[in-house]
Nucleic acid binder design. Structure first.
Length: 288
DNA sequence: ATGGTTGAGGGTCAA
């Protein structure tokens, strides 16, 4: 079986390209991120015509994740248990002569309700529990989205720990855009990332915690070469200059990791007109 | 060169 993950950066802008990838690569199950559409806008027909079923969750032009499968798609979950929503940091008292006021909790009635975002979808395909994951970007170290990102990763790790606890033999794939570059060699140059997200110690710790939970990041096991990227920004000729980042990964439960016979990063998908800024990461699994 | 690229929506915002 062939299982892949790809941040497609709008499934409507690239439906033909995604279908072509499925057919060319022989992918059975594809987890996509950043569909950038609501459910009612998803181009289901293009995938169904190619013989695939789709499970999608999307609420707006932001985020959106899906699993696309030709080996069945069951027990769909549109979020993981305990998945945090985004809430702005509590308002901080400020004004002339007021220095911060950090730590003062707002009145409870002033706290906004967290907004649930379409960033995780789970489905069982061909015996594998596949989670398509779009980890929050974080934006900046002092941004509320950064706190959200860390909380989101921690909550996912806690849930992933429970899944393995309930069934140590479970075949679980946690795949997607993690928005973390775990190693300095996962970016073209660390200098531009001084004080930036994606490379900070807390983000890297939150990512590495999945190993402590018993999972194996199988893409690096099979593709250990440094400066092997999965994303290149659209701006400033990043792809021709190979100024990329490795931020798309596949954490596999032990039983699934044992089945992985090879991993491919399809760099060709970054080429040509109409490319996403990410490329697919493809896992080959032995057996059905 | 004080910008550089996409996508969605029609507001700029997000990445």
């Amino acid at each position: 079986m062939r299982l892949a993950t790809w941040n497609v950066n709008s499934v409507r802008a690239r439906a033909d390209r995604v279908v072509a990838f499925l057919e060319r690569s022989g992918t059975d199950v594809l987890a996509i991120q950043e569909t950038k559409c609501r459910d009612d806008q998803f181009p289901y027909l293009a995938f169904e015509a190619a013989g695939y079923e789709v499970a999608h969750v999307g609420f707006s032009q932001w985020n959106g994740v899906a699993v696309i499968s030709r080996v069945g798609i069951d027990d769909v979950e549109l979020a993981f248990a305990g998945q945090p929503g985004f809430a702005k940091a509590p308002a901080v008292a400020s004004g002339p002569g007021v220095d911060g006021g950090a730590g003062q909790a707002p009145a409870a009635e002033d706290a906004p309700d967290p907004v649930h975002e379409a960033r995780a979808l789970g489905a069982t395909c061909g015996g594998v529990r596949v989670w398509s994951l779009y980890v929050p970007n974080g934006r900046a170290l002092d941004d509320p989205h950064y706190t959200y990102k860390l909380a989101w990763l921690d909550a996912l790790r806690a849930q992933a720990t429970r899944w393995l606890g309930e069934d140590p033999a479970a075949q679980v794939a946690l795949v997607g855009d993690w928005n973390v570059a775990p190693l300095d060699t996962d970016v073209w140059d660390m200098a531009p990332f001084d004080g930036a997200t994606h490379v900070s110690a807390p983000e890297r710790a939150a990512f590495a915690a999945f190993a402590d939970a018993g999972y194996r990041e199988v893409s690096r096991e099979h593709l250990p070469a440094e400066h092997t990227y999965t994303f290149w920004d659209y701006k400033q000729l990043a792809f021709p200059k190979n100024k990329g980042m490795r931020i798309d990964f596949a954490w596999a439960s032990p039983a699934l990791a044992e089945r992985v016979t090879g991993v491919t990063i399809d760099r060709e998908e970054r080429k040509g007109k109409g490319a996403s800024d990410h490329v697919p990461v493809i896992l080959d699994l032995d057996g059905d």
